[in-house]
């Protein structure tokens, strides 16, 4: 199972990285989501995988002899909820960027925040310091 999980996480990572390298903003967001899944799986597998032994304390028998590690679970639980809000935020960001720039292509946005001719800024700075 572990090997299968490792392969799954590996594929998710690879797909996530591939998507994040795309030019479309939406695809970059999809890449981030895939990376989130992959990271959760990675964390989940940090402790030995066990079936049918959730980390619950039995009211009668107390601490079970075998139990799944609760620590990664607690970590992943909040990560999932946060990833939802991050997704929401990213979606809004993309939406606004699209509305403002009229493009969903990152390469076309390249020159929207700073002038592409950074030479000018540099030479100004040079005059200033010397």
């Amino acid at each position: 199972m572990l090997y299968l999980m490792a392969i799954t996480a590996g594929v998710l990572f690879a797909a996530g990285i591939f998507m994040i390298l795309r030019r479309s903003m939406v695809k970059v967001l999809v890449g981030i989501l895939l990376l989130g899944y992959a990271a959760n799986l990675l964390l989940f597998n940090a402790a030995p995988l066990m079936r049918g032994v959730p980390p619950l304390i039995d009211p009668i028998y107390g601490v079970p002899a075998e139990y799944a590690d609760p620590v990664p679970q607690a970590l992943i639980l909040t990560a999932i909820v946060i990833s939802f809000s991050v997704t929401a935020f990213a979606v809004v960001l993309i939406r606004r960027a699209y509305a403002v720039t009229g493009t969903g292509d990152l390469d076309n946005m390249h020159c929207t925040d700073i002038p592409c001719e950074s030479e000018e800024i540099l030479s100004d700075l040079e005059d200033e310091i010397i």
Binding site: A6, A14, L42
Partner: peptide, 13 residues
């Protein structure tokens, strides 16, 4: 991306 995926799978193992 494939290299990244393989590395992460390896780290996981």
């Amino acid at each position: 991306s494939v290299a990244g995926g393989i590395m992460m799978a390896g780290l996981m193992l």
